[in-house]
C-alpha cells in the first residue's frame, strides 16, 4: 500500500471520511504522519473558532472590567479570575458534567456533550478570560495624550472608541495576545486527552499520537511527529499575527515599527 493510498484513506479520518478501521499493522511513518496530521484538523478547528469568538467576548470583558459600573466591573473581574485561576483540565471536567446534567432537560442540549461544541465553548470562555485580562492591561496603558487628542477633534463615545481607544489597545496588547494564541492552540490537545470522549476514534492529533504510541509501544516516534506539526502551526500563528502587528503599527515612525525584526549576526 503506497503512501498516497494511505493519505487518501486516512487523510480525513478524524472527521469521519475515509477508511473506518484504523490501521492494525505496519504503523509506518506514513500512517503516523497522515493520521496525526488528520487529527490536526480538530486542533485548528478548536483553536481558530475559539480565538475568533473569544476575541469579541474578550474585548467586552476588558471594557467591563474597566467600566465604572460596579456590577459590570465585578462580574467581569470574577469571570476573568475564575477562568484564569483554574486549570483548563478542571474546567473541562466541570463543563462536561454540567452539559450531561442539562441533557435530560431538553434535546437542545444534546450536542453540548460532544467535543465539537462542548469543548469549543470551554475553550472560548477560557481564551476570552485570558485575552480579556491582556486587553484590560493594554486599555489601562493607552496614552492619555491619545485620548486628549481625540477629545480635541471632537470625537466621543463610539467613534472615539472605534477610531482611537480600540486600535491603540490592540496595538499595545498584540505581542501578549500572540502568546495567548499560541497557548490556546496548545491547549486544544487537552480536549480528548482529559475532557471529552472520542467518538468512533475521531480525535485530535494527540489522540492519534497516543494511539500509535500504544500500538507500537514506542513514544519516540509519534510524539515528535506531533511536536513537528505543532511547531509548523506555531510558526504559522506567529507569521499571521506578525502581519497583523505590522498593519496595526503601520502609522508609527519607521524605527519604532521594526521592533520585531530578526537580526542576523555574523561572527565578528
Amino acid at each position: 500500500m503506497s503512501c498516497w493510498e494511505t493519505i487518501a484513506d486516512y487523510g480525513l479520518r478524524s472527521i469521519g471520511i475515509g477508511e473506518r478501521v484504523l490501521p492494525r499493522e505496519g504503523y509506518t511513518l506514513c500512517q503516523q504522519f497522515t493520521l496525526i496530521g488528520s487529527g490536526m484538523i480538530w486542533n485548528i478547528y478548536f483553536g481558530v473558532l475559539a480565538l475568533c469568538s473569544g476575541f469579541l467576548l474578550a474585548t467586552a470583558v476588558a471594557l467591563g472590567k474597566a467600566s465604572k459600573n460596579p456590577v459590570l466591573q465585578k462580574a467581569s473581574a470574577w469571570f476573568i479570575f475564575l477562568f484564569r485561576g483554574s486549570p483548563l483540565f478542571i474546567q473541562f471536567f466541570f463543563a462536561y458534567f454540567v452539559f450531561l446534567s442539562l441533557k435530560p432537560v431538553s434535546p437542545i442540549f444534546d450536542p453540548f456533550t460532544s467535543a465539537w461544541l462542548g469543548a469549543l465553548i470551554v475553550l472560548f470562555l477560557n481564551t476570552a478570560a485570558y485575552s480579556g485580562e491582556i486587553f484590560y492591561g493594554a486599555l489601562q496603558s493607552v496614552p492619555r495624550g491619545d485620548m486628549e487628542a481625540a477629545d480635541a477633534y471632537g470625537m466621543s463615545g463610539w467613534s472615539r472608541f472605534k477610531r482611537v481607544t480600540w486600535p491603540t489597545m490592540l496595538r499595545l496588547a498584540w505581542p501578549a495576545y500572540t502568546n495567548e494564541a499560541i497557548f490556546l492552540f496548545h491547549a486544544t490537545t487537552l480536549v480528548y486527552f482529559s475532557g471529552f470522549p472520542a467518538w468512533q476514534q475521531r480525535g485530535d492529533a494527540l489522540y492519534y499520537a497516543s494511539f500509535f504510541a500504544d500500538k507500537t509501544f514506542n513514544p519516540f516516534i509519534p510524539y515528535p511527529i506531533l511536536a513537528f506539526y505543532f511547531i509548523l502551526l506555531t510558526l504559522c500563528v506567529i507569521g499571521l499575527f506578525g502581519l497583523i502587528n505590522r498593519r496595526l503599527n503601520r502609522h508609527l515612525p519607521q524605527e519604532s515599527r521594526t521592533k520585531m525584526k530578526l537580526k542576523l549576526n555574523i561572527i565578528r
Partner: peptide
C-alpha cells in the same frame, strides 16, 4: 481507550466511544 475491548468494538458495527 487503548484496551483490547476498544479495538474490538472499533472493528465491530457498533459506535465506539472511548
Amino acid at each position: 481507550a487503548n484496551t483490547i475491548q476498544a479495538a474490538f468494538i472499533a472493528s465491530s458495527g457498533a459506535t465506539l466511544v472511548e
